[in-house]
Write a protein that binds this DNA or RNA. Structure first.
Lengths: 198, 198, 198, 198
DNA sequence: AATGAATGAGGCTTCATTCAT
DNA sequence: AATGAATGAAGCCTCATTCAT
């Protein structure tokens, strides 16, 4: 007997997708387990079969996002070519990826402090490694004299990612700018602000 | 006549202060009314005498922050002097003010979406007016040829305020940089990224 | 200095009137003291100056109604004339009075069981005396052979007053029947059902 | 397999029974959910598993009563036999049923106005249909010349059901009259008051 | 005669989670 | 792999009443 395609999609995946959407829409605390399972078309029992708790669901979402972002950054950072080009490409990519997965991004920055202390620590550590890899690109450029050296690299990264994280607040598909456009602009702004003094 | 200072402070003010601190620390949804009134040393009944609801408390916090920020921005924007200096001063000030009132800032960006739809609309509108005033400074500079014109002013503002809002995530008093230092750096980064070509 | 007429009306009276209206509209338990004082245009302190409690307010309403009904019944019952005429007149009058003071009637039968046990007892006793006076009219007619004797007088009174109390449920001013019309019909129905067997 | 009968009865049914008893005893507003679940021997969570709200509980009680009464009325009204006999039987039956389920009746007329506006409307509509079926019997008799025609049928029904609804106020099992006796008397009173002149 | 801030108890409801099946 | 009844703790809010002024 052939089953419907919708039902075919693994339950676990459906739960993650719907949870992400709902957490992005109304926040972790304001989303009930009941709403999640209803949206995924299963019962609570099913959810607790795949996930240890509501917290665990959030943890899994974080894991997925972190793995993907780190992978992409590594690809761009480890490529060949001038440092300015590599940083530009990496910056542009993280913006486009964020725009393409806006729900993930919203959940990430709105609900991070709802994680349990232990999980929170793990996520922070993963996130720090990501930031450090990005910062190293800035430092590389500063050492090579391609970027100005009178600004703390760490702070520049926080500055830039603040702008990236905030995309979820104002970007809407169908707005005046597309993801790639914003990506190019953001990368331009970053690179220009790092340009050495004339 | 004069009694203990802590007890002297009006109940309403004490409630606002403690609520801000707690919302910043653990989020709006994860803070119970019971915790707020306990921290303020009053009973629930007292809180509901001054505020219509937990939501209303949050709304009042927003009102206070918005009024203060708009006031300061207006002062810097309407001052005399070259546009680049005025924008630099305004940018520097908003960073310093944010750092000095980090709890306000944390609450603002973490809990905004927990407001009721009606109140949310009002706050968004207030916030938009603030952004527009800031954006007008950028446009003024672009028209005058002081800033490069090939980047959307609106987006630049979103870029910059993303960085500002994100301060609550990584800034800690006693860290390597002081508020004024970060303020100068952020303003520098903004101005440089707007510097005209060649 | 001439004060407004509305303000001129005694506070106590205004409180009773508004309380009656609100209790009739939404019931005793669902009406808050705050709503009553707001409707009367005074503050809680004023209410507690005139009445010992919310219960006391209800008690006063009952007292007023009971006194008036007993007075009117006595007038009709003690008049001269044939018993059938006196009962008819009394029955007609209680219907018209009920219709004219529908709020009083609604409060009476909807909120009686919200009185404190002690007050409840007093009201029941008063009410019983009223019923007994009415019942005595029926008995008088039965003894005189004017009314059929094969039906318990007590029950006839309960039967009739059930119909009267229920007026608040269906009667609306401006409906197909006026108060006097309903009064005549109800009295007719009562008298006919008591007519001796042909 | 068979355990204690009390525990055996389904939770949902037990909740309805106890709620009916308590609402009849002290009114809807004065009965707390805590009291209901305690009487039924379950927890609040269990109640909210079966009923959406305290209001919903009341609504279900109304539904049960309305369905039963309509069913019985239809049986008597649609039977064969002279109209006078059918009306007498229906009137007698509603009295006996009311006496047998006095709690239902008390709840019905004391707490109806505590329903939410939407549910209230539904219940009123159901109730109206019941009244109309009863009224049609009166009209049938009037058209056939068996009942006097100079009295509005609608009002007669309101008159009679006022008396029926009021039973909960004065009837007590073990009193001087039994349910069937009151049923016969009430039906007699109704039929006599409708007897044609001469 | 009247105010209004403050109390404290209690009300309805929501929710993550468990467990027998 | 999945159900769904049931739990129990906690959450937000309402309210009659008091009291210093």
């Amino acid at each position: 007997m052939a089953r419907g395609a919708a039902t075919e999609e693994p339950v676990r995946q459906r739960l993650l997708t719907e949870a992400t959407r709902l957490f992005a829409e109304r926040g972790f605390e304001s989303t009930s387990v009941q709403e999640i399972v209803a949206a995924a078309g299963v019962t609570k029992g099913a959810m607790y079969h795949y996930f240890a708790s509501k917290d665990d669901l959030l943890h899994e979402i974080y894991g997925r996002v972190l793995r993907m972002q780190m992978e992409r950054l590594t690809t761009f950072a480890d490529a060949s070519g001038p440092i300015a080009e590599r940083l530009h490409a990496a910056a542009r990519d993280v913006v486009m990826t964020t725009v393409d997965n806006l729900d993930d991004s919203k959940v990430f920055f709105r609900s991070m402090h709802q994680l349990s202390p232990e999980v929170y620590k793990i996520v922070r550590a993963d996130r720090r490694r990501y930031h450090e890899r990005f910062r190293d690109l800035v430092i590389e450029g500063q050492r090579g004299g391609v970027f100005r050296g009178d600004v703390p690299a760490e702070m520049v990264v926080d500055f830039f990612f603040g702008a990236v994280h905030h995309l979820g607040t104002w970007y809407h598909p169908g707005g005046p700018l597309t993801g790639p456009e914003i990506g190019r602009h953001f990368a331009d702004l970053l690179l220009r602000s790092l340009a050495p003094v004339g």
